[in-house]
Design a protein around this nucleic acid. Structure first.
Lengths: 116, 116
DNA sequence: ACTACATATGAACAAGTGTTCATATGAGGT
DNA sequence: ACCTCATATGAACACTTGTTCATATGTAGT
């Protein structure tokens, strides 16, 4: 948490000021951090990918991702808390789907980068 | 690691097959996971934001982000290992900059989502 | 060579995260 | 009411991650 930088003549006081002006608010960093954390786990990435074009229930997701029911349920819970997915109960099943296009966009963009 | 899902008649065998066909390779998930992990820490987000339009040396980044020299150096090291930033040594200083537009795009997109 | 400054790096530690296991909730059919 | 299936949830545990502290490396100037 040291405030200052170089002791030698600060070579770039102007540039530093610019950069400081560009700073975002803590809320923005926190939100972005949260959003990226959600999509930085490969189990959740698989879930998001599976839900990309359709809604699925938990047992469908088990079949698709080859993960345990508990693991999936825990991850879906996080994804729902952070509003990346929404759910709808129908009979014995709970169907999950992506809640908006934000996730889809971020996911697609990263996927394109992965192809290189 | 259970393979199957519901024991009751699998209501959506067709949809499940679709979802399975949409699966990506493990390498893709791993890469995306790694990329998102890198931008999911708020210290690194601050660094990336600071480097968005300019190159900066470590001491500049200390001044801008208000973080310790060691913390910044460690994070820069990770960002460099994963090729998100590149560095150039000039005299006593080491100047860091974003290595390509991938990061910028992902960052911007998330930032827009944060504004809502 | 010596000193001051800029950066890197290793070890240690606290905090966070994902999985499993066991169990709870809740709906449908009988 | 009872039983079964689908899903949720809490506790425990191993693992990862970010920071600090101490120290090393390396460059420039004297």
């Amino acid at each position: 948490m040291k405030a200052d930088g170089c002791k030698e003549l600060v070579t770039h006081p102007k540039v530093i000021e610019e950069a400081i002006n560009d700073l975002l608010s803590n809320e923005e960093y926190d939100y972005m951090s949260m959003l990226f954390k959600m999509v930085s786990d490969s189990t959740r990435l698989k879930i998001i990918n599976a839900l990309f074009d359709r809604e699925l229930c938990v047992c469908d997701l088990m079949a698709v991702t080859q993960m345990s029911q508990s693991a999936i349920s825990h991850q879906l819970s996080k994804l729902k808390q952070t509003r990346l997915v929404k759910s709808e109960k129908r009979g014995k099943n709970v169907f999950y789907s992506l809640s908006d296009d934000h996730v889809r966009q971020i996911f697609k963009q990263a996927q394109e980068h992965a192809r290189e």
